[in-house]
């Protein structure tokens, strides 16, 4: 098997995506996601064949044929190959990165300041991201899937691109380094800043004005502001929502339980599509909670061909259009 040469914005850029004895499970995902972004943008990404069996092949979600959806997502379009002068290295193994011959390299570490084991779950715990979703008295809820690895991979990809761009612009490549925990804390900046600046209480159990609400056939994400309250009351057929106590965000937060008792009662016997249609007329930007199958079948996502057919089956494309067409279509020589 040979690695297909990349076509796209990063055409000509070669990247070695390598793990080693010093790699971690979370780091493997981060390295692979960074390589995925590079590959989708047109770089040629190699995964050396001598790195041993890839444990990601056994990681969920698993498909009906026994293969891993995660592995398919992360490795499509990549292949084996050997390093050549001028290649970039992406790795979470400090020894491999230290041994690389020049500064075309990015190291993904679990943390910057202390060496201790981390997982997606513990990074979320240590970054404050686990104190955001959930119910008081219950274990907090984690973000789903491989978010910490993906976020770290995205940051590492940007470190690589910044280094490469510096050299393309006439400077020198700069060795990049990122830490998963730092990337996670960076995501949580608004929450941290609010607390540091003493602005407001946060965390699980805080008064969030917009909450997922059940309707007859699913769930709705309602959104409304002060000026929307008359239309919200109309949509809910609930005059009580016009009361003074619900007129401001502060008032609504003080009376959240009562407000959502009214909203839930109003939506209980109504279908999501009916609610959304009326919400559009009333300029309320509600959304339906959709499963991945529903998202893939949604007219907007269909129109923009978010799911593309790859050699191994359907796959989300890179989430942007490049001069009006997908990068994948460009790579394939077709039209979006």
């Amino acid at each position: 098997m040979t690695t297909p040469l990349g076509h796209g914005p990063l055409s000509g850029l070669r990247i070695i995506e390598q793990v080693g004895a010093g790699s971690t499970d979370m780091g493997r995902v981060a390295v692979a996601f960074a390589g995925l972004l590079a590959q989708r943008f047109g770089a040629t990404v190699f995964r050396p064949a001598d790195a041993g069996p890839d444990p990601i092949m056994q990681w969920p979600p698993m498909l009906a044929d026994g293969s891993s959806a995660l592995h398919r997502f992360l490795t499509a379009g990549k292949g084996p190959g050997d390093a050549q002068p001028g290649d970039y290295l992406l790795s979470d193994d400090p020894d491999l990165v230290a041994a690389w011959s020049d500064d075309r390299k990015v190291l993904i570490r679990p943390t910057l300041d202390e060496a201790r084991p981390q997982s997606d779950l513990t990074v979320m715990a240590a970054s404050g991201l686990l104190d955001i979703v959930g119910e008081v008295g219950r274990a907090p809820l984690a973000l789903p899937g491989y978010q910490m690895g993906y976020v770290a991979g995205m940051v590492a990809f940007n470190a690589l691109l910044a280094s490469h761009l510096a050299s393309v612009l006439g400077g020198k490549p700069l060795a990049g380094e990122i830490a998963v925990l730092e990337a996670a804390r960076w995501l949580n900046w608004k929450n941290l800043l609010s607390e540091v600046s003493g602005q407001r209480a946060s965390g699980v159990g805080r008064a969030e004005e917009w909450q997922i609400t059940r309707c007859k056939d699913g769930y709705i994400a309602p959104v409304f502001r002060d000026r929307d309250m008359p239309n919200l009351a109309r949509l809910m057929r609930e005059p009580a929502l016009l009361e003074e106590r619900f007129a401001t965000a502060a008032g609504r937060r003080r009376n959240l339980a009562e407000m959502y008792r009214l909203i839930e009662a109003a939506l209980a016997d109504r279908m999501a599509q009916d609610i959304l249609l009326e919400a559009v007329e009333l300029k309320l930007p509600f959304a339906q909670v959709q499963s991945p199958e529903q998202v893939a079948a949604d007219p907007q996502m269909q129109h923009r061909q978010f799911i593309v057919e790859g050699p191994l089956g359907p796959m989300p494309r890179l989430p942007l259009l490049w001069n009006g067409r997908s990068v994948e279509a460009w790579q394939a020589g077709g039209e979006a």
């Binding site: 899937g145 991945p292 089956g313």
Partner: peptide, 8 residues
């Protein structure tokens, strides 16, 4: 990866 699994 969830989309790949869901469509399968």
């Amino acid at each position: 990866e969830a989309f790949i699994a869901a469509l399968d």
